[in-house]
């Protein structure tokens, strides 16, 4: 599979820009508005689609009802919405299942990298690891301790 290399902040920024355009915007025009090349915003578009915040048809990005709820929400509520969406992403569900199999609900980063490498076609798995941790931390699902190099289920999960 291909996982979108975009942070949650970039994805929300994209949704806000589409919202300003009335809820539907041409991807190329949006890139132009930000002085970006189309391929620079594609990961954010793919991320918005994967999280169920946008649909893309013939180059037009359209906000979903969930995206409107997200944009209308305050910072605290946004976090909850993102948590639910991130928890539903297949590769993140599978990564979480790996924790549940372990005794202490934590695994070494190298094991997580091995798991991701099997699922994501890339030679740069480290940067995908960072993005996935960005998503899961945003959602309060999976954290990473860089001292012990372990990823773990966040409190409350």
């Amino acid at each position: 599979m291909i996982f979108p290399k975009a942070t949650i902040s970039e994805i929300i920024g994209l949704l806000e820009a589409v919202n300003d355009a009335g809820g539907v915007e041409d991807a190329a025009r949006l890139a132009g508005d930000f002085d970006l090349e189309l391929d620079e915003i594609l990961p954010s578009i793919d991320g918005a689609e994967l999280l169920g915040f946008a649909t893309v048809t013939d180059g037009n990005i359209e906000l979903t009802e969930d995206a409107r709820k997200l944009l209308d929400a305050g910072i605290r509520e946004r976090k909850k919405i993102i948590r639910d969406k991130v928890a539903g992403v297949e590769i993140i569900k599978e990564l979480k299942n790996k924790f549940m199999e372990s005794d202490e609900h934590r695994i070494k980063k190298e094991d997580a990298l091995g798991f991701l490498q099997k699922n994501i076609s890339t030679t740069d798995i480290e940067s995908y690891f960072k993005i996935i941790i960005n998503w899961t931390r945003h959602g309060g699902l999976i954290g990473y301790n860089s001292d012990s190099e372990e990823i773990y289920l966040m409190p409350g999960e």
């Binding site: 942070t7 902040s9 970039e10 910072i75 605290r76 946004r78 976090k79 960072k130 941790i133 960005n134 931390r137 945003h138 309060g140 954290g143 990473y144 301790n145 860089s146 966040m154």
Partner: peptide, 20 residues
């Protein structure tokens, strides 16, 4: 919490994106 950083308390700046 107010800025939505809960969950990031024990994280070092090197692990954060620019936005965070």
């Amino acid at each position: 919490k107010a800025v939505g950083l809960d969950g990031f308390e024990k994280v070092y700046p090197r692990e954060l994106s620019g936005g965070m």
